[in-house]
């Protein structure tokens, strides 16, 4: 039986769907027996879910405007250098 510390060190492998099935079973047996690690797994999964659910934020209009103006200058300069 793994200790909680050993399990935590393997937590990423437990959460990774591509982990070797034997290792996964070994880790699963700890989670089944240990309420604390069960909660840690659950709340870690929820942590990842809330971050994945965040949409990229809108760029403020002035920031966007300066980006496009800078790009326009760059492209114009490149075209001028080529001609």
């Amino acid at each position: 039986m793994l200790t909680c510390k050993q399990f935590l060190q393997e937590l990423n492998d437990y959460l990774d769907p591509n982990t070797d099935p034997d290792l996964k079973r070994k880790l699963q047996s700890h989670v089944t027996e240990c309420p604390n690690c069960f909660v840690i797994v659950d709340t870690t999964q929820k942590t990842l879910q809330v971050y994945k659910g965040v949409e990229p934020q809108t760029i403020p209009d002035d920031v966007k405007s300066r980006l496009w103006k800078a790009l326009e200058r760059k492209i114009a300069a490149k075209k001028q250098a080529q001609s």
């Binding site: 937590l11 990423n12 069960f38 709340t43 870690t44 929820k46 942590t47």
Partner: peptide, 23 residues
């Protein structure tokens, strides 16, 4: 991941209950 889990748990934990709410 573990550090973020800790921080968010402080924010989102269910009030007045403990781990056994799952069981």
């Amino acid at each position: 991941r573990l550090a973020l889990r800790e921080k968010l748990t402080r924010q989102f934990k269910r009030k007045g209950e403990d781990v056994f709410a799952y069981l």
